[in-house]
Design a protein around this nucleic acid. Structure first.
Lengths: 216, 216, 216, 216
DNA sequence: AATGAATGAGTTTTCATTCAT
DNA sequence: TATGAATGAAAACTCATTCAT
């Protein structure tokens, strides 16, 4: 009978750690790195500031932990796509739609990643946990592109990294820059209809490009 | 020779206002809104903090002025494109390349716009000066798309607003997210070669899509 | 044909001086000495800050000028009472009522005098213009008291200075402390009815005291 | 001997809170609300500015706390008068003298209340702690007035609220306006003799009024 | 006489972090 | 582990006053 397995701890450091992380993600997503307040994170998590520092050492490490969790979740999600099991056209379309949907469902992702880019990825660079997050997906995409070219349904010589960045960027930019774009185009880009239309446009753009075999 | 034309003014409020704006743009671009320091702006411009407040009332209004100047410059630049004077394919390609080049040449633009999006465009919304900045360009693009479709060189029924957002986003996202993408792809995206390759990819993607007339 | 008498000056320093003084009185009355803003005075008077300093040297001297004008006005007002011309009872009642009415009609007086007391009368002490403002009135009151005692309608041996301070204080305190008294008594003391009642009470108190000749 | 009772606490938040309050009262009394400096309060209490804000949130709340303590003390003091136990004349005289003495012994009271009146009682109005501070005393006074009228030693139909305000005001005004009155009467009102004389005058005035039963 | 740009010392307030308990 | 009191350095902003024009 081991100590660790036994009693449901009333002092449960790991649970509290997760609560802090949850509150921190919310606060960093709402206000950016410099705008975020450790006091607010303590208040939201209903835990003390001292405990935050006990578990995470500093605001910087806390933000790093938030990013690590964020990329970890994305990585898990991507694993479940099984792109290899699909035909080229279905597979690529699945990737496009899933990518877009993921951003729509996880709006914090975009804000947090933008925040980290403002900071020149200084936290991500220090992280041992965040590695080639997109590599599996890029590899799968490359497989689909090659198979599609062989089958004559896709143009050939398409750089999979560039294309993957495009697939991500076409959705990410729209969602990330909604607020300013809304002002300079004087239309709301936030309605469900506008978002659906965007998704359709991205799919059409990428698939239309790939299917144009005259590019060979 | 009049008095006003002669003597180099020791008091030149407008010039000082511009100097403040220049220093502010640099500081906001470097550190974001919350990270920016009014003290730093004063030091950089070699003017007193009091004068900054005398001319701009608050950090918020100062940031708003920076954004207004930013969009004004973009607007001026876009005017000089004369897309209407070109054939459809050349015109669209010109737009794609110019847009990408503009972001490369003005890296502050992206950081500042991202910062404003983090703040949900609160400053831009308050601005009377920033209006439909992209409307002229969108209209020109629409003209090119219609003419191209008529001539049979472009597919038809392409939404010009969506396409324009895509043209912007494909470059913007790459440059804006370089730092994190560099980590998760473990390649440098900042080299001149990588940047040229990106520009070529975007052009190919958009033009490839448009030229695929089987989409009709 | 003298210079000074002739043309209606477009540059009219004295008029501007008066405008500054008027705006200053309003601002000091609203916010006290430390709370008052020279900028606000400039804005209200629609004149420049530089001009305020040109005419009044400093915030301190400006406040002193406001106080001098204030006491000058009170002095003028008091002259017009002609207490000596009245019978003792009528005269004293006239003084009581006039004093109270003056405070009601000039609410700025009380706030400004309180402000100066908070500053231990440092401006008034420096002033050459403000002298024995209340002396004529005190002397008149003394005359009435003596005559009244002789006639047997007033008690004798009443100290005119103390009584005068009481006559002033009974109204002044009520009006000056209305706000806090309103809270600790939980009634409004600001209504016209409440103010009339107060005036009646003061009159009754003082006259009732004086008429009680058994005090001799 | 328990742990809590023994050791002299190095961290004693409540004590520090009281020390801040004490220093704040002194500073606000010396300089008024706008003239008071949080820096000075920190220096006087030998505690950090941050701690002041930790305990009191803002300068406004700090001033409110000072006022609450002030009225609380007054309330405690008044409770100890037991006016009900005295005969009408003795009781009223006791009230008059005690009220005057209280102001003489607590000169900060007058300055702080004047300051709050300059601010239109904005802090007191927000306070839940400061209620009908004078109600018990007013009620006791009313009892004495009725009993005195019954016994034929006092005039009848005297409004207890008005009379109480008069009793307070006759002393308060003198002490509050000493500095300006000293200038306009060109006598010192601050000497112990002058103060005794004032107290005697107030007593004579109020008692003389009440005893004049011909007012019925 | 008149303006308002310009300053610098100071003012309230904030906040990441530390530390006693 | 856990709390929240405590700090100090720095943040945004203010304001009486001066000064060039």
């Amino acid at each position: 009978m081991t100590k660790t397995a036994a009693r449901p701890l009333t002092r449960d450091p790991e649970k509290k750690s997760r609560m802090i992380l949850k509150a921190a993600r919310k606060e960093f997503a709402k206000s950016g790195y410099d705008g975020a307040r450790v006091d607010k994170i303590a208040a939201t998590s209903k835990l003390s500031k001292g405990l935050i520092y006990h578990h995470f050492q500093s605001k910087d490490f806390l933000f790093q932990a938030v990013l690590e969790q964020l990329y970890e979740e994305l990585s898990e999600e991507n694993k479940a796509l099984y792109l290899e099991d699909f035909e080229p056209e279905t597979g690529v379309q699945r990737l496009i739609e899933h990518t877009f949907d993921y951003f729509v469902k996880n709006p914090e992702f975009i804000v947090l990643v933008n925040t980290e880019n403002l900071l020149k990825a200084q936290h991500l660079k220090k992280s041992d946990l965040v590695g080639k997050t997109f590599e599996p997906l890029r590899a799968s995409l490359e497989g689909l592109l090659l198979k599609g070219a062989e089958q004559g349904v896709f143009r050939s010589n398409v750089n999979s990294t560039e294309l993957y960045i495009s697939i991500v960027g076409l959705g990410y930019f729209y969602l990330s820059n909604m607020h300013t774009l809304g002002v300079v185009f004087e239309t709301s880009l936030t309605s469900p209809d506008a978002i659906s239309a965007r998704k359709a446009h991205i799919t059409e753009l990428v698939m239309g490009y790939l299917r144009n075999t005259s590019g060979n």
